[in-house]
Amino acid sequence: MNHLVQLRRTLHQFPETALEETQTAQRILEFFRPLSPDQIFENLGGTGLAFVFEGKKPGQRILFRCELDGLPIEDLNPSNHQSQIPGKGHLCGHDGHMAILCGLGEKLSQNRPESGEVVLLFQPAEETGEGAKAVLSDSRFEQIRPDFAFALHNLPGFPLHQAITREGTFAAGSTGMTLIFTGKTSHAAHPEDGKNPSVAISKLILAIPEICRTIPGFCLATVIQVDLGGLAFGTSAGKGSLSLTLRAFDQENLNRLIQEVTTKANSLALDDQLDLKVRFQESFAVSKNDIAATPFAMKAFANLNLVVVEKAEPFRWSEDFGLFSQIAPSYLFGLGAGEKCAQLHQPTYDFPDELIETGVTIFWEIVKETCQVSKT
């Protein structure tokens, strides 16, 4: 695994953020060319890549996904492979996830499946929730649309190499939501001559907890920013905005939460004669593990004698892989990165190289279970 470790560390040194992963994609492409995949898809959904390894006979198409992008966060972990790009770092472990899929590609190049096809997808822009949608919207995706899709994510705080699983929802769906209220500016001495959105925004903030309580299951709305007027003491604000992050463990509940917040905002805007615009960004679908895909992963864990932990509740964070669970039976699982490992998105985080071999062997076992590769 030494060459995969070196690859991972090189990727770590040169992180690129969402939709800018051109050099990262080029490094991955250079790694795969000698492996002679049967098909290569470049610029998929922007900077994405897909490599197809065909079996000897027709069969199921299995997709494994990893992420290309890093984060706009400074890497503050001193090492001989510390990020060389100011203000950017692979602080979520996508460099390690890429190395795992590269290792799986090596195995497939040496031993094609007996049946079916295996697709290795390197997806752009996971961190912003744009990448999966872009890949699925690419017309060429129909050529690699899978029968099953699998992905993993390293998880600090769990023992190294431990598999973390869950039936049904694995991670929440979420969306960023900004509500922009526009009224009329006036002199601060005569606020009655204007239309200040401060009251509507305040009422909406106070109403949000009750909206969440009316929806069954886990729903959470977090206020992340309030922007109102400017620092002009003689002026009553005529424009303001409220930004929220909405989360739920069920896609229908998330959609309902969005609708309820929008309805309340429209009502408040109407009461105060304000215009309202609603914008969404960084939207993630609920990541849901399908019962049809689950046995393949569980058999792989058992074959490798891994310690498996069934999590009682879904994770509150979101993963762009959730969109794949809407187009094919999918399975997302966690791989423990160590109890003392820095948390994801922290400036001192670094992917544990020991997980590369574990990830490769798990995915390889799934390939053997789904595509009838020789088990010798």
Score class of each variant (00 low, 15 high):
residue 194 G to H: 00
residue 373 V to S: 04
residue 98 M to V: 14
residue 299 K to I: 15
residue 260 E to P: 00
residue 232 A to N: 00
residue 108 L to V: 11
residue 180 I to H: 13
residue 257 L to F: 13
residue 90 H to G: 02
residue 317 W to G: 08
residue 64 F to W: 06
residue 126 E to Y: 11
residue 231 L to K: 07
residue 76 L to Y: 01
residue 170 F to G: 03
residue 230 G to I: 00
residue 350 D to M: 01
residue 56 K to G: 02
residue 90 H to D: 07
residue 292 A to K: 15
residue 69 D to I: 03
residue 321 F to C: 04
residue 368 K to P: 02
residue 131 G to Q: 01
residue 233 F to Y: 01
residue 264 K to L: 10
residue 165 T to S: 06
residue 371 C to E: 02
residue 350 D to W: 02
residue 300 A to V: 12
residue 131 G to T: 14
residue 295 P to K: 04
residue 124 P to Y: 05
residue 143 Q to D: 10
residue 129 G to W: 09
residue 356 I to Q: 03
residue 80 N to A: 09
residue 218 F to A: 07
residue 22 T to Q: 11
residue 144 I to E: 00
residue 181 F to R: 08
residue 31 F to W: 07
residue 351 F to K: 14
residue 306 L to E: 15
residue 205 I to W: 09
residue 305 N to M: 09
residue 326 Q to R: 15
residue 299 K to Q: 13
residue 108 L to T: 11
residue 372 Q to H: 13
residue 343 Q to E: 15
residue 43 N to P: 01
residue 266 N to F: 06
residue 308 V to K: 14
residue 97 H to I: 09
residue 60 Q to V: 13
residue 292 A to Q: 15
residue 53 F to A: 03
residue 51 F to W: 07
residue 33 R to D: 05
residue 313 E to G: 03
residue 151 A to Q: 04
residue 151 A to D: 01
residue 61 R to D: 06
residue 42 E to K: 05
residue 63 L to N: 06
